[in-house]
Design a protein around this nucleic acid. Structure first.
Lengths: 242, 242
DNA sequence: TGCAACTCTATGTCTAAACTTATTTTGGTG
DNA sequence: CACCAAAATAAGTTTAGACATAGAGTTGCA
């Protein structure tokens, strides 16, 4: 049936998901069509309904299927697909590219937040946060520039951290797990400071990543990351887990 | 225990996941710690092991937990968190912003692929694909500019589509579901054509989205989307499904 | 000491059965 | 015909139990 001919048996739910995906892509089931219900598919694939449910949930999460109680499962008309991408630590990114990582703190001091940052964090303007700017290098070349505001009230233990030793990104990742995060990409022309720190020219288009995180105590940190010119941030659309 | 005090009962697996998340964020369980095994948690939360498994899988997918057979479940040391973002149709994006959508095809013709595009698609250089350029408007203002190559050999039915009526994005989404996609963001300085079509000045930093999709027949399409200056593409880190 | 073979354990997966819940369908009633 | 109540249905969730499997830990032998 849908078993691999060789002995390579992957999980049954995966097989079912793959077969359903195949039928959609090869247009056996077309956009908007209602597909057989879980009970019928369970019979067809000789599986328990729970297993079919798992497979279809997976495809619904990918955006390929629309499922509604009582109404059944349909092939999504506008497959709003989800792309997942992974936020790892800068050092790992640099090292994975086979380069030697280094790090330099350009500035770090308590400072009242400007209005735009305060609004993004949901804090009062003028509240004092820790402001820092740092550059991450790969083989001595600037890799990214970060401009970060940290809320000490959400990060107990911060006072003991020395960001000249360990970088803020890494300290936060290790010590301040978050409940919620917001990410956004944009593009900006390098200003004079960006250009100097990234060793490029003013006006150069830079890919900017904005990230803000919260935990139970409030906003933890917000950061503007400017990548070196020409940098790509990539994703692959998830084919679920292994 | 972990039930909501009011009648608001959310699924049990969700409750467990939330409670585990809370313990991690509030550092009851710290990075690297081994947490109790599924059987013990099942007893603590008065649930079946399968339910606990579901909850922990969820958190492992988020990157908060590391799980290995026999070795148990640990709080991830470097929480490689995953951010999910949604690829919807341009028209929907524009309309959701409360603007009137319109669309203009600037050019469309069969054309031999240049080397870089051919490589990205895994095709021979010089193979003939359909090349098109179009602008999407919101309330008459340029919203994004797309430069697209379509592989007719992976898109049966394409010959009957009139992209002056229906836009390519939408036709492809509706008629050519894909198995695999690659996405990447970058930033570029607007060239003369970008600037003219987006009604901005050359050199302006533009956020660029590259997307390539494949189905069982091969590469379907690759597109370079240039957003209007100042545009943000945002995501939220998933708190799982509703 | 080094290592191969074995054991044991926590997670991974599946099943059958039950119950819950959102929605649609149906059918009756004024 | 409009409206509401009841029945039916398909997905959503949970459970107990079973077996599979990776891989950490242990043992015993050379």
């Amino acid at each position: 049936m849908i078993d691999k001919p060789n002995g390579l048996t992957s999980p049954k739910a995966q097989n079912i998901a793959n077969e359903v995906r195949r039928r959609i892509v090869e247009r056996v089931w077309r956009q908007g069509d209602r597909i057989p219900d879980e009970a019928d598919l369970a019979i067809e694939f000789d599986a328990a309904r729970a297993t079919v449910n798992k497979a279809l949930q997976l495809l619904a999460d990918e955006g390929l299927l629309d499922r509604r109680r009582r109404a059944g499962t349909r092939v999504a008309v506008d497959p709003v697909r989800k792309a997942t991408f992974t936020i790892s630590i800068v050092r790992e990114q640099v090292e994975q590219a086979g380069k030697a990582y280094s790090y330099r703190v350009v500035a770090q001091r308590p400072s009242p937040v400007p209005a735009d940052i305060a609004e993004r964090l949901g804090l009062q303007k003028g509240e004092v946060l820790i402001h820092m700017r740092a550059i991450h290098y790969g083989d001595g070349q600037p890799f990214q520039l970060e401009d970060r505001w940290i809320n000490p009230r959400a990060t107990p233990g911060l006072e003991n951290a020395d960001f000249r030793q360990l970088n803020a990104n890494e300290w936060l990742v290790r010590n301040a797990p978050y409940l919620r995060a917001e990410l956004a990409f944009s593009a900006e022309n390098a200003n004079r400071r960006d250009a100097r720190l990234l060793q490029t020219r003013p006006g150069q288009a830079l890919l900017i990543l904005h990230r803000t995180t919260w935990n139970n105590l409030g906003p933890i940190t917000t950061v503007r990351v400017a990548y070196q010119p020409g940098h790509f941030v990539g994703t692959e659309n998830s084919q679920a887990r292994t």
